[in-house]
């Protein structure tokens, strides 16, 4: 079953169509990536799914129901979480408060505290800094916090926007290991990345986006060997 399905999704930004009718499917339990260059419309697509941009209701189906144009705070309750580009941590709140906000929609205190332990075991660094304000963390730690915070809502579908952006290679490695661990826990993931190789290596399925359109899609393993992808996104000549 497809947890998320985009059908001819169009998103306009003040007259300019940033996304021009794309189709995309994320089957339940899988990790799907959306790759492409800067400005291709990947972030816009994620924002539309998360309810941050107005779109036609039918263009986005989640668990079979149309959710296009629904407001973001309602979607969180339905198990959809976005880790935004640039992390979006609350800099003046502590690490613990940021994580508590991740669980804002939940009232099952016992389960919340066991999920908190799970996040701390995924990211021991966050446990050490729980009382520190988030603004004082390094970029990598902020990314950990952003992912951990999203997990605190116990999402069924996790949308990740450029988790590797601006991070040192070692930190990128760590973040991706965690993404795989989360996927193994059964969380469905739609990953947007500029680092195409890394994204395709962890995904089961991939989509390539260019100037608002999906130009290529298929099993991630096939995309990794596709000559066009290799030339354009993996920095290899034929």
């Amino acid at each position: 079953m497809n947890l998320l399905e985009l059908t001819r999704l169009e998103v306009a930004y003040g007259g300019i169509k940033a996304v021009r009718g794309i189709n995309l499917k994320v089957p339940e339990g899988e990790l799907v990536c959306l790759i492409g260059t800067n400005g291709a419309g990947k972030t816009t697509t994620l924002k539309a799914i998360a309810g941050l941009l107005p779109v036609a209701a039918d263009a986005i189906r989640y668990e079979g129901a149309p959710i296009g144009g629904a407001r973001s705070f309602e979607l969180v309750r339905r198990g959809l979480a976005l880790v935004p580009e640039g992390r979006g941590v609350f800099g003046q709140l502590t690490v613990a408060e940021n994580l508590a906000m991740g669980a804002y929609v939940r009232s099952d205190a016992a389960a919340v505290s066991s999920d908190l332990e799970r996040v701390f075991s995924l990211f021991p660094r966050l446990a050490e800094r729980r009382g520190q304000s988030a603004g004082t963390l390094s970029g990598g730690e902020q990314q950990m916090l952003a992912i951990g915070r999203a997990l605190m809502s116990r999402p069924k579908l996790l949308l990740l926007d450029e988790p590797s952006m601006g991070l040192a290679p070692l930190m990128v490695q760590k973040i991706f290991e965690t993404i795989l661990a989360v996927a193994k826990d059964g969380v469905t993931i739609l990953l947007v990345e500029q680092n195409a190789r890394l994204a395709l290596e962890v995904s089961s399925h991939g989509y390539v986006m260019e100037t608002g359109l999906i130009t290529l899609s298929g099993p991630a393993r096939e995309l990794l060997t596709d000559p066009k992808v290799r030339a354009a996104y993996l920095g290899e000549a034929d």
């Binding site: 705070f73 309750r77 935004p84 906000m101 929609v105």
Partner: peptide, 14 residues
């Protein structure tokens, strides 16, 4: 406090 710092991300928290 979260809303005052970043309303959009606050919305993403539900």
């Amino acid at each position: 406090r979260a809303t005052s710092q970043n309303p959009q991300v606050a919305g993403l928290m539900g």
